[in-house]
Write a protein that binds this DNA or RNA. Sequence first.
DNA 1: GTGGCTTCTTCCAAGTCGTGAACTAAGCAG
DNA 2: CTGCTTAGTTCACGACTTGGAAGAAGCCAC
Lengths: 394, 394
Amino acid sequence: MEVRRTTVRDMRRSNRSVILTGIYREGPLSRQELTVRTSLSAASVSNLVAELIAEGVVEEAGSVESEGGRPRVLLRVAPTFRYVVGAEVGETRVRVELFDLAMNVLARADHPIATPSPEAVVKHVLEGLSTVIAASGIQSEQVLGLGVAVAGVVEDNAIVDAQTLGWEAVPLAELLAEGTDIPVHVDNGANMLGQAEMWFGAGRGATDAVVALVGSGVGSALVAGGSSYRGARSSAGEWGHMTIMYGGRQCRCGALGCLEAYVGAEGVLDRYRLAGGTVDADEETAFVELLESTTEPATAIVNDTIGYLAAGFANLVNLVNPERIVLGGWSGLLLGEKHLDELRAEVGKHALRRPYAQVSIVLCELGRDAVALGAATLPVVRLLRDGGAVPPPR
Amino acid sequence: MEVRRTTVRDMRRSNRSVILTGIYREGPLSRQELTVRTSLSAASVSNLVAELIAEGVVEEAGSVESEGGRPRVLLRVAPTFRYVVGAEVGETRVRVELFDLAMNVLARADHPIATPSPEAVVKHVLEGLSTVIAASGIQSEQVLGLGVAVAGVVEDNAIVDAQTLGWEAVPLAELLAEGTDIPVHVDNGANMLGQAEMWFGAGRGATDAVVALVGSGVGSALVAGGSSYRGARSSAGEWGHMTIMYGGRQCRCGALGCLEAYVGAEGVLDRYRLAGGTVDADEETAFVELLESTTEPATAIVNDTIGYLAAGFANLVNLVNPERIVLGGWSGLLLGEKHLDELRAEVGKHALRRPYAQVSIVLCELGRDAVALGAATLPVVRLLRDGGAVPPPR
DNA sequence: GTGGCTTCTTCCAAGTCGTGAACTAAGCAG
DNA sequence: CTGCTTAGTTCACGACTTGGAAGAAGCCAC
């Protein structure tokens, strides 16, 4: 029985959560606005807000004049109530960032990594954690949690499979927890970038969306009904290995005709090479040159890429009927910046009329750095869900 | 603010719902088992169950000896507490069925339809409703609701678009409500078949699944986290028009290379014809003959179809990571009955290793008649969600 | 100032709910 | 019939929201 009971305490926690989430996500709000939006009674809002203020989670932040009467006092989540740390584990480096609750970066630490062994990563994440805490001059008790983003499949805070790092079955959260008392959350990198875009970037306001990431690899983060959808076992969103050309190009996953083999930067450059184009050794430079070239093979390759990507988008549009698709990833952004309108039009050729009319296709607003930002939202999500209750120290 | 407040009443409703859902979905249960599964206190279970029994929703159904102590009294949802009606609106007929809450069919009515105008459909559904109520000898107040399944896009109980019927923007629920006091629910046919399979067929027990329907057309019903996923605007699940062969065969939707153009019965037979096969005028006969033929073009076509369908499945596996895929639809079943193992193996060639290992691919267990059964679950879903509270008469 | 207005706060009674502990019911072995 | 075991019930209690009413707080126009 997956459904859980409700007790009289859940009620209060849930109402605290509603109020806190409202204040956090919909900017500074007055109590009066909260009573309207939550449909709680004024008495309850007053009561709950007083409690939240007493605990320090919420603070008053100026006031706004009303129509002739007492001005409304605006409430916001106190940015310095607690802090959160986000870490991005990449193939070549570990990046750790500390944020206040308003998600301002207060400190940053970067560690290059030669070989990404679990031990080295754990060591550098923990070092980075200490560094950013020291640099920002706060107490470690003030840190609500550490979110870690890894490019791999994550089930229950453990890495199940991370091919780019060569990891399999690494209980990363557990390993990290041995070195710190701060609560640790581990999740997939694409999901975290998606999370960042949904909260602070091009996804704001959408409840059913897909954040599509096109770089050397191709992936996506699915958002359904306002929260990230992970599927039965946390690996949903593997959009890059969708077959769009049955029997087509060989993909590095072993299958034929995957989207990634056509629109991933590597695949695109490879196709360009085969068509007689000259390709710079550096992937990114080569990609930019391809986009800027006006020679025949280059423009054809770019057009084809737009078509393939559009088919991939259309498959998403048809299957999950999102209200928004956010295109990101380094090569996706480069392509999108020049050719978004063509892309949109191409999607219309492959998608069904109705869902196509309901979707808006936009570009990511945050940079690649947003991965750590997204990871740092993990502890915030928990804080909001729990109505401001801080996890007990271990 | 999409999140709603919780009041002291929601708590009881929610707990009644938890208990009632448990009793309904997990067979007869004793109070004692309910306390364990819901983690409610024994006192509360007793209290809530007493209330449900007093209202007639739940009844005691024999007892089971315990290990040496007082026997447990089993509880079940009283099958005759209320009744539900499901209707299937097809191109050529309207079928209406009346069930008790245990989903036993008590009466059935079939109306052939010449031209499926909204007026004719409304008329025949209402007539069918009266017929089945009269035939089963119950009062119309005893009918909890009428669920109607239509092959088309349904938003908020209104048909938005039903190409096979030639409908656009038909407020079907509203039209039906003018002719009856029974609460009306309208939904998409594929979703209803999926719902039936999830509750009573091959989908039982799964929370993240896809019911794939392959017939003349191709569609699917997505189930995420235990409930049907409809996307932003209710048209999620359009799996048939996923591009699997970029630039490939023309599909009736206008695009090129859709899955449906390759694995829909029409598409398969058309490919067979092009390969030199002889095709019977009747689609179903032709399809059976194709499957049974051992000639070269026939076996090649069948093998190709398995490959294409496998690619379509693999795309689902990668993107939504379901724990189960249920294959249904008339031609899908015919194909699956003979070639399920090959199909499973082919999916493995296109899907990523991990999500492929996590999914089981099975055949539908219910016939095509299950559409009305699925539609009839709509009022039941509502009953369970509301904890046994019956919608007030209008 | 004064009165008017809106925004909060405080208080209270009423009503709801789940809980724990004590209690009753029902079967069985001897 | 006794004692034991398990299942289900009763009841006082504390926690919670609500609605209403009274009032305080803060600002404005006059």
